[in-house]
């Protein structure tokens, strides 16, 4: 049995401790935002925060994660309010979206230690593969997220999930809350 903290909750995995953290998260915890793309650390689609550092969850086992604090894309914010999430949507630096959770995690880890990164800092901190080609927008998006973190700017591009019809009707005259 392996015990760790995932998205602020204590979890006990009844799986082989050799199981990669990725598959513990996906198959057992049903945290499916963390993606499998290669299993060998090449693509970064499975990136999660482990004690604040962006790590490829396909390369660490549940056993190695014992006692550590893991944050997945689902736990980055409760309501898409993390500046990286807002900026990726605002810049439309997303196409198919399969690599997006991993990119968001890489970028969040970078901004947590350096909220004013240069393009070179960003290129070094975001090794994630994207086949659709969102790269040209990533530097812009991550620098913009950094400005939000430094309180130079605000973004409201991605609404919080779970809006009630009443909330929607208050914001959009064409909607009717009932």
């Amino acid at each position: 049995m392996t015990r760790l903290t995932v998205n602020d909750r204590p979890l006990e995995f009844r799986m082989d401790p050799q199981t990669p953290l990725l598959w513990g998260l996906r198959s057992a915890a049903n945290l499916t935002g963390t993606k499998y793309g290669c299993g060998s650390g090449d693509c970064g689609a499975c990136m999660v925060l482990v004690d604040g550092a962006a790590l490829r969850s396909c390369l660490i086992t549940l056993g190695e994660a014992e006692g550590r604090v893991v944050t997945t894309i689902e736990g980055l914010s409760p309501d898409r309010s993390h500046p990286v999430q807002q900026a990726l949507v605002a810049e439309q630096a997303i196409q198919c979206g399969f690599c997006t959770p991993g990119i968001a995690i890489s970028a969040a880890a970078l901004l947590a230690r350096n909220a004013d990164p240069t393009p070179e800092d960003i290129a070094a901190a975001v090794p994630n593969l994207c086949r659709c080609g969102v790269y040209p927008r990533l530097v812009r998006a991550i620098q913009r997220a950094g400005r939000v973190m430094r309180r130079l700017e605000t973004i409201s591009a991605a609404p919080a999930p779970g809006l009630t019809p009443e909330d929607a009707a208050r914001a959009v005259p064409a909607m009717r809350g009932e």
Partner: peptide, 28 residues
């Protein structure tokens, strides 16, 4: 222009940025 606010932002992006957008392997 690049980076400008959009009249018709993509509808699929909010779900893609918080892990809730389901692909075939995310079905449970």
């Amino acid at each position: 222009l690049p980076g400008a606010s959009l009249r018709f932002p993509r509808l699929d992006l909010p779900a893609k940025v918080d892990g809730s957008f389901n692909f075939a392997g995310d079905v449970r």
